[in-house]
């Protein structure tokens, strides 16, 4: 059991990372990574939805017939997204004002659906919850890294406005790498997203080759 959980954690964070290995969820990966803070916010909201939807889908997996599984998965994911959206708006309004835009987008991210189909529909509740959680954390890490790359090059800052997302205590994270107006604009525009992602994919591939890991083509690897 312990080795299985360790494998789940390692898959989510690196080996089968949602963005860097499965290459799923490209829409939020491109659209929401104009700054590290945005990437972090989108990632955390997605991680929460993935953990809870995977848990529910695994719990109900005995009742979901094969033919209607996809609409049921989408229904569960959309319901979790709506619950998160309404709850944040009501009780964590400051956070909602930052994340509000991103949250409905999670339904259109195919990573939660992918994990539901590949993992939660077959595996027990605890393992599915962990898979959703660590896939989500891996997704968060990838988005935050891409966001940081684009933000440093494009705006010369790192984690700008982090206090809006995480609270005033995190103001120390906000750094200015170089003066304003020296940024390379293209980094925060759409092409910058592709450039940063490509660079990150190349780095991961290089590290995996150096570690002697077999190279898996995007999308081909699953449980």
């Amino acid at each position: 059991m312990a080795t299985q959980y360790r494998q789940i954690v390692r898959d989510g964070l690196w080996d089968n990372n949602g963005v860097l290995a499965q290459m799923l969820g490209m829409c939020p990966t491109m659209a929401m990574t104009t700054s590290a803070t945005n990437g972090l916010g989108m990632g955390l909201a997605t991680a929460f939805v993935m953990a809870t939807s995977n848990l529910l889908i695994a719990a109900f997996r005995g009742y979901i017939t094969r033919e209607v599984r996809i609409p049921v998965y989408i229904l569960i994911i959309a319901a979790m997204v709506t619950v998160v959206d309404l709850s944040l708006n009501a009780w964590m309004h400051e956070l909602y004002k930052v994340l509000g835009l991103f949250i409905p987008l999670i339904v259109s991210n195919c990573l939660p659906l992918g994990r539901a189909e590949v993992f939660a529909s077959k595996e027990p509740v605890v393992a599915s919850f962990l898979d959703g959680l660590f896939m989500g954390i891996g997704f968060t890490a990838a988005l935050t890294t891409i966001g940081a790359m684009r933000e440093i090059v494009g705006s010369g800052t790192l984690f700008a406005d982090a206090h809006l997302l995480l609270g005033p205590a995190f103001q120390f994270m906000e750094t200015r790498v170089f003066p304003a107006d020296c940024g390379v604009l293209v980094a925060v525009l759409p092409p910058g997203g592709f450039l940063a992602l490509g660079l990150l994919l190349a780095i991961k591939r290089k590290l995996d080759i150096r570690a002697g890991k077999p190279i898996v083509l995007a999308g081909a690897h699953s449980f």
Binding site: V72, T82, V83, L86, S87
Partner: peptide, 21 residues
Amino acid sequence: LVLGAFCLGFGILVATTNLFT
């Protein structure tokens, strides 16, 4: 019936959340 039951269940969940928020 399966699909309908899930729609009903999660519909109630969303409606309840809406009511409370």
